[in-house]
Structure formats: structure tokens, C-alpha cells
Design a protein around this nucleic acid. Structure first.
Length: 556
RNA sequence: GCCCCCGUAGCUCAAUCGGACAGAGCAUCGGAUUUCUAAUCCGAGGGUUGCAGGUUCGAGUCCUGCCGGGGGCGCCA
């Protein structure tokens, strides 16, 4: 999903992009998007731009000629930040001034959000996630979605994008009815559990609390209790929502009088718009939407022949409601079982926008992230779970075994679209193999280091970063330079797993540095400069962990 | 049968908008500790990116076909 916007505070990478674009425009009269990225090998520079290849076909000249010609011009244009520009093959390899990196870590160490780029934009993003049925406790897949969604919102906000989180409660008629029947079964008022009924020990507790209520009222009452408990679990997991929207909101205006044909205004608006533009039709007593005319395999049912609207209709009303509140980009986190719904949803939104004459309502403004399954592994074996029998491993079960920090870190270790193996045995280990502790340990180590330095009268506050001259130090400073670029990548691609990966690389570098180089040593100038570097690593680690909802301990 | 997602080292996975010689961790083997926190570090081996074509200066990444795994194909959500 594109998140366009005018940049206010730019990262160095973005500044380089901008300057290069201007140089190329001035030199050749060609406007090209620039690709600026770290080269595969550090020796080749800090940023690299394959601009020669891009221009070669336009100019009908060999790539190397072009970059050789461009190098001195670019070097001058970027002189404030870049020491050297090297033409290699079709690339321009940029070597950032070490003084720039030194200044950068000084700022990072002292100012909380100095590194964060600010995207100045009118866009408003709504991230909808978890959205579990109010029929049982949250499971580990929900927990994964919670980790992903919450981190995305945190990062987007930190970058200056207006982002809100929302939870959609699927309290549709069918679910509540099934819950109602399951309660009756648990209370012994019903012989058999219906086909779509819910099982599981948890239902006992809830059922007994509502046994005094008249039949027909218990399902909704239990659903409310379950929702409340879900929110409590999520709260303990460090996740909360700005808004909660119920599917029942889109039903009849008066829930006591669910007459057919009297829906909520959004539902009504959807139906009327489609009807007005002949996008819907009646067949066998049911109302269909002609999604097939827009690329879907077949028409989809909006209202069943028994008069009851489908989930699909309410979902369209819900998404109209999202757009109507002024959101310009919608991000939905769905489970793999909803994969087939993505296309039809986008098609239907396009149709809806057309029918309403509302340019805000568009399929391409919806991005669906499929959050893949979680497989629990214990002692190298998969933990068996049977949803049919009602045995499943809940978020609460997980938090009894594993700390919140560990769980949240593990859930973001893989890209959202890949299935995740959650190794419970590994998650409980206190060693390097456990990546959470590996990263947190850097933070604790530096905290201890800083107080040790203070005992020796050393403070990073008056340090001169020019004393940082070792290659390991430059490498660390350079990695810090990449932090904001990483965050931009998270926002642009909606891939929060980049944060733990970045933190692991930074942690590895720091541990190696610490092992090799004495930080509090004989020379006070060098020592305090190294403490400054350590402090800026600490800041970045703390910030990065905060984005993924993991604490940064001072002692371990 | 049709549609969608995924196939990368023995295992689990990275790889930024299509960029350079595809990188980590685990596992395996060998080393480092009178410490500023060893919850750490250093080193070694390991690859035809499922297969075959195509587009491109350049493909793990895009297109076509095939093989293998998963999910969907309901007037359930």
C-alpha cells in the first residue's frame, strides 16, 4: 500500500534520493525514481545507487560512462554529508562522512526521537486486527495478529501518520444463536450440541453466570462477557484498541425489532446504491451482487432467500463506515481462511464507490494482510490441537508459560505472510539462542556500563564523538544510521518483522564490539566517547523494543 | 476441476522499489572467561533459490508452463 506524503524530517537516505533526482534532472532532463540502499558489502560504501543502469537505456550510453560523469557532480551536491562518491559498474557508491555519523550518534544519545523521520501527510490509516468471534478465548493466532497490528500502529504513529486501531466484533445473528444453544446444552437444557455449537471448558463458567437469564438473552450476555475477557487478555499482552465496532451495529436500528428491510443506515446505503445502479439482482428469492461483472468468479449473495443479510453485506456496510469516518487507507489483518475473500471485497468496494459516486470508497485503498498460522513446538514436536474437540491453546495458556516480552518478540520474528513455528522450549531458555534476551541483554549491559563509567567520573554528556575512530565503531554508527530507514520500510511495506531483525543485527554488533574493545579504559576522552556510542545504541534498542511492545530492562 | 498463498543451506527463516559474489540463527566441530554483566565472543564446513522457458544491462524477486505443500471454492463467519 502506498503511503504517500510530503516529507518533513528526512532521513539521510531520503535526502540523498532527493538530491540525486535533482542532479539527474538538471544534467539530463530525465525524472527517475532513485533507489538508494545499503550495498551488499560494507567496504563498498554506506549507500549505493544503481543510477547508471537506469539511465543507460534513456541516454543510449554505457552505465559506467554515466556514473563516471555523474560522480563528481553528485559528490559536490552531497558534500555536506558524503565524503566520497565512487563510480563502480553502473553504481554510485557513497561513503558517508564519518563526522556525520559521529554527530548522528551524539544526537541519538541525547534526544529521544531525533532519529525518527516525520512524514507530513493528510492520510489517515485504520488498522483493524484480531477481530475474533466473541464465542471463546483468544488463541495464539489472535495473539500473533495482535502483535503485528499493534506494532504497525505504533510505527505509523511514530512516523507522523495518523493511525488508529480497531477491533470488529463478529456478533452476527448466527454466532450468537450458536452460542445461545451451546449454553443451553452446557446447562443441561438441551439434549445435543448443535453442529455449529461451541465446546470447551471455558463455556461452563460463563453459562452458569447467565443461567438466571431468560432463554434468548444469554448468548448476547455471554458474548459481552467473553469480549470483556478478550480485551483484558489483550491489555495484559500490551495491546489495546482505539475503537471497537460491533457487527450488530449494522443490523436493524432497533435490535428488538429486526424487521426485514430495516437495517442500519450504512447497510441501507449499500443496498440502495447497488439497487440504483442495477448492480444487484434477485434470484431464487435471494439478493445477489454482480461481482462477476467486475472480475469475480460468480455473483455473491447479499441477502439470503430467508431474508437474512450475509456477513458480506454487513462487512461492506462496515467498510463504508470506515471510509465515512475519514480514513483514507484501510489495513485489515485477516486469517488464512479469509484469503479467498480479499479479491471479492476489493471488487465490491470498487463497485460501491462507483454506485455511491464516492471517490473515497475504493478497493485499492484496502490492504489485507494475511496473518499466517502459528504452530506451537515443544521439545521439537508440534503441539497437537483440535478445534473440533474444543481443545485449544489460548493466549492465556501461552502467557502462563512464556513472558509477554518473549511472546511478542517471537511473533514478529517471521514475516506476517509466513507460517510461524513458535518454539516453546526455546522461548523458555535464558541464553543466546533466545533472541529476546540477546537483544534485551544489550540494553542491560549498556545500562550497567554507564553506571560503571559514572563511578569512574565518566559521562557521555561531555563526550567528543570525534574520538571514535575504530572500524568497529564506524560500523555501529552506520547501523544506527539505518534505523530510520528500517522504520520507513516497516511502514511502506507493512512489515513489522524488520524491527526484530534489525535489532538482532545491532545487538550482534554491539556484543562483538564490547568483547573486543575496552570501553571504560585508560584514556578518559576515548572512554567517554565510547560511552556516548553505547548510550546511543541503548536508545535505539529501547526505541526498537518499544515499537514491538517489548520492555528494555536495565538489569537482567 | 478452478482460484489464492508458499517452495531459498540438514532444520527454522532473511534478502528494502528488479540491483553487485543469495545472508543469519539452530544443529555439528574447534577455541576464548584473574571481566566494564559469559544471558557474551572468535573460527570452520555447508547452496544449480522446486523444475523448464521468457522479459531485462541485471531475476530468489516480474511473466508462462509443470512438479510438490497449504488454504479456499456455502444463501457459514
Amino acid at each position: 500500500m502506498p503511503l504517500p506524503g510530503v516529507m518533513k524530517n528526512l532521513t539521510l537516505q531520503q535526502r540523498i534520493e532527493k538530491v540525486l533526482q535533482e542532479v539527474v534532472e538538471k544534467q539530463y532532463g530525465i525524472t527517475l525514481p532513485m533507489v538508494v540502499e545499503p550495498p551488499p558489502k560494507p567496504e563498498w560504501g554506506d549507500y549505493s545507487v544503481p543510477v547508471g543502469f537506469k539511465l543507460a537505456s534513456h541516454l543510449r550510453r554505457p552505465p559506467h560512462d554515466i556514473v563516471r560523469e555523474l560522480a563528481p557532480v553528485v559528490e559536490e551536491a552531497l558534500a555536506d554529508w558524503v565524503a566520497q562518491v565512487e563510480p563502480v559498474q553502473g553504481y554510485l557508491n557513497l561513503h558517508v562522512r564519518t563526522e556525520y555519523l559521529q554527530d548522528l550518534i551524539q544526537v541519538t544519545a541525547t534526544q529521544e526521537d531525533a532519529l525518527l523521520p516525520r512524514l507530513k501527510t493528510e492520510d489517515r490509516v485504520l488498522v483493524e486486527y484480531v477481530s475474533a468471534n466473541p464465542t471463546g478465548p483468544l488463541n495464539v493466532a489472535n495473539a500473533r495478529a495482535a502483535s503485528v497490528g499493534d506494532s504497525l500502529v505504533r510505527v505509523l504513529r511514530a512516523l507522523g501518520i495518523q493511525a488508529d486501531s480497531e477491533y470488529y466484533v463478529n456478533d452476527g445473528g448466527g454466532q450468537i444463536r450458536a452460542l445461545e444453544h451451546s449454553i443451553e446444552y452446557v446447562l443441561g437444557e438441551r439434549e445435543t450440541l448443535p453442529e455449529d455449537g461451541y465446546r470447551g471448558a471455558y463455556l461452563q463458567t460463563y453459562a452458569h453466570q447467565v443461567r438466571h437469564l431468560p432463554r434468548g438473552k444469554r448468548g448476547r450476555a455471554v458474548a459481552q462477557m467473553i469480549l470483556k475477557d478478550q480485551m483484558k487478555d489483550l491489555w495484559e499482552f500490551g495491546v489495546s484498541f482505539d475503537t471497537i465496532v460491533h457487527e450488530s451495529f449494522f443490523h436493524a436500528p432497533d435490535p428488538e425489532d429486526p424487521k426485514i428491510g430495516i437495517y442500519h443506515k450504512y447497510t441501507q446505503a449499500v443496498l440502495e446504491a447497488f439497487d440504483r445502479h442495477q448492480m444487484s439482482f434477485v434470484e431464487d428469492g435471494a439478493l445477489f451482487l454482480k461481482t462477476d461483472a467486475y472480475g469475480d468468479e460468480k455473483p455473491r449473495v447479499l441477502v439470503r432467500s430467508n431474508g437474512e443479510p450475509t456477513y458480506f453485506l454487513y462487512d461492506l456496510a462496515y467498510h463504508l463506515y470506515k471510509f465515512d469516518r475519514g480514513y483514507t487507507h484501510l489495513v485489515n489483518l485477516w486469517g488464512p481462511d479469509h484469503l479467498g475473500h480479499v479479491q471479492r471485497m476489493k471488487i465490491a468496494l470498487d463497485m460501491l464507490g462507483e454506485a455511491l459516486g464516492d471517490p473515497r470508497v475504493r478497493g485499492d485503498r484496502l490492504t489485507v494482510l494475511i496473518v499466517q498460522q502459528v504452530h506451537l513446538i515443544r521439545e521439537g514436536k508440534r503441539v497437537a490441537m483440535s478445534k473440533r474437540k474444543g481443545e485449544y491453546y489460548t493466549l492465556q495458556d501461552l502467557l502462563k508459560e512464556v513472558k509477554k516480552d518473549t511472546a511478542r518478540f517471537f511473533f514478529l520474528l517471521r514475516s506476517t505472510s509466513s507460517p510461524l513455528d513458535f518454539d516453546l522450549s526455546l522461548a523458555q531458555q535464558l541464553s543466546k539462542e533466545n533472541p529476546v534476551y540477546y537483544v534485551q541483554y544489550v540494553h542491560a549491559r549498556i545500562a550497567s556500563l554507564l553506571s560503571y563509567g559514572a563511578e569512574h567520573g565518566l559521562s557521555p554528556d561531555q563526550a567528543d564523538p570525534r574520538a571514535l575512530t575504530r572500524p568497529e565503531e564506524r560500523q555501529l554508527m552506520r547501523e544506527i544510521l539505518y534505523f530510520p530507514d528500517t522504520l520507513l520500510g516497516v511502514a511502506r511495506k507493512l512489515e513489522p518483522h524488520r524491527i526484530p531483525h534489525y535489532l538482532l543485527r545491532l545487538a550482534e554488533m554491539f556484543h562483538a564490539y564490547y568483547q573486543k574493545v575496552r570501553i571504560v579504559g585508560e584514556d578518559p576522552d576515548v572512554s567517554s566517547a565510547r560511552l556516548l556510542l553505547a548510550q546511543s545504541v541503548k536508545q535505539v534498542v529501547a526505541k526498537g523494543l518499544d515499537f514491538i511492545g517489548v520492555s528494555a530492562p536495565n538489569r537482567m
